[in-house]
């Protein structure tokens, strides 16, 4: 849902800026990563979201609380709070695996040849 909102927001900005500023040419790796989930098949993704909506809405609420907190700190130029937020987030993110950059990250999302045997048989044949 967050990735969808980011992508649609990017689309809106690209429309506002017109033809002279193409997002296709100017998108940065962080936007590409943030919107990468939208490369999934729309029907598959919609089903995934729709049939887990209760859980997803709960999590979005949690996320919105955090987002409002960050935006409030930015609006108020609250340097100490912004620093604390970024430091906390950085520490948590550093404890997660695989952060060698966009391309490395994508490699984590893909079918790992070592676990190929775990794929459904028809997928293995397709490869």
């Amino acid at each position: 849902m967050i990735s969808a909102a980011l992508t649609l927001n990017g689309m809106d900005i690209a429309k506002q800026l017109g033809r002279n500023v193409s997002l296709a040419e100017n998108a940065n790796p962080s936007f590409k990563d943030g919107s990468a989930a939208m490369l999934s098949h729309p029907e598959y993704l919609t089903d995934l979201l729709y049939y887990n909506r209760k859980h997803i809405l709960e999590n979005i609420k949690r996320f919105e609380g955090r987002l409002d907190h960050v935006m409030d700190a930015i609006r108020d130029d609250n340097t100490a709070e912004i620093t604390s937020i970024i430091e906390q987030a950085s520490e948590i993110r550093r404890s997660m695996p695989a952060h060698k950059g966009a391309d490395e990250m994508r490699r984590d999302r893909v079918v790992n040849p070592e676990t190929l045997s775990e794929l459904p048989e028809y997928m293995q044949r397709a490869l």
Partner: peptide, 10 residues
Amino acid sequence: TLLDTTRIAN
């Protein structure tokens, strides 16, 4: 997905 979208949080 979280790993993708939060890569830049570090």
